[in-house]
């Protein structure tokens, strides 16, 4: 039994060294991600490569660039879909957009946009609410190959039936087929949806703020982070939002455990929509 405990401790040590190697090699910093999650992914990599230990994985990824890339891609979860969680999009329509409509121009940030489905879903909603032309949309992700798919906006045809059902449940105002052109086995989103959308690489762990956003979507990214890292990223969002700006998290994510929870008010507890409170005046400012 002791041997299993010792083995576990040793494995954790080897795992920390592995993540350190990835960080020093590339700047990609997975050291603060949820460790049970990362460990499972790395075990998968190790077993698939037929290696016995994380140290062997470390050695190989240092020397073999192709292997390094395969490890990076194994560490990222890119699962996404159009109008994922339809109720969320309904809540955005009903509770967020009426406020944003009062601004002449809005800035939107999708952080961790994966292959872009979330971005195009929101673009559709904005278009249907007549707001698309006065929106600038930033869509970012850590993973360049996935961003490339997002930029192209081409998705497998067999996903479309599910997307269409989601669109309808999300309160879609017209027919989903108006937004894409279909091929034999794929669909391409219409060019109009791509207008005012800027895709670019951005790492939430190591890169800086995006200024004066009116709404930030960061859905199903934070669950893969440990709590220190979550706090850090929430602070990044806080600093990127204008006063009264909205933060939209994934259905199973929340600000409940964040040290910045007080800086936000809850707009929709179920759909995890929050709004930045105006900053409290500092004591010096009040004294003036």
């Amino acid at each position: 039994m002791t041997t299993d405990l010792v083995r576990m401790e040793n494995e954790r040590l080897e795992m920390r060294l592995l993540l350190e190697a990835i960080y020093q090699k590339s700047g990609y910093d997975f050291r603060g991600y949820a460790s049970a999650h990362i460990k499972r992914r790395l075990e998968h990599v190790r077993n698939r490569a037929g290696l016995a230990t994380f140290c062997e994985v470390t050695h190989r990824l240092i020397w073999d660039a192709e292997f390094f890339d395969s490890v990076l891609s194994a560490l990222s979860i890119n699962v996404t879909e159009m109008f994922r969680d339809p109720g969320f999009y309904r809540a955005v329509r009903e509770q967020v957009l009426p406020v944003l409509k009062t601004y002449p121009f809005i800035k939107v940030w999708h952080a961790g946009c994966a292959a872009g489905q979330e971005v195009y879903s929101m673009a559709i909603v904005l278009a249907e609410e007549g707001m698309k032309d006065r929106a600038q949309i930033y869509a970012t992700d850590i993973n360049p190959p996935v961003l490339e798919i997002a930029r192209r906006g081409i998705y497998p045809l067999d996903a479309v039936r599910h997307y269409t059902a989601n669109y309808q449940k999300a309160g879609g105002a017209s027919s989903f087929s108006e937004y894409y052109t279909a091929d034999y086995d794929s669909v391409a989103v219409k060019t109009a949806l791509k207008q005012n959308v800027l895709f670019s690489p951005h790492n939430l762990v190591t890169d800086g703020i995006f200024g004066e956003m009116h709404v930030i979507f960061c859905r199903n990214v934070l669950i893969y982070f440990g709590d220190d890292l979550q706090n850090k990223v929430i602070k990044l969002f806080l600093d990127s939002l204008c006063n009264g700006g909205f933060l939209c998290l994934g259905t199973k994510e929340s600000l409940r455990f964040s040290e910045h929870a007080d800086a936000f008010e809850v707009v929709d507890a179920r759909e995890k929509i929050y709004r930045k409170r105006p900053a409290l005046p500092t004591p010096e400012a009040e004294a003036e």
Binding site: A34, A36, H37, R40, R41, I77, V79, N220, I223, Y224, D227, K252
Partner: peptide, 9 residues
């Protein structure tokens, strides 16, 4: 001893 969630395969 805290929970974490994932949507991996």
């Amino acid at each position: 001893r805290r929970f974490s969630l994932s949507r991996e395969e």
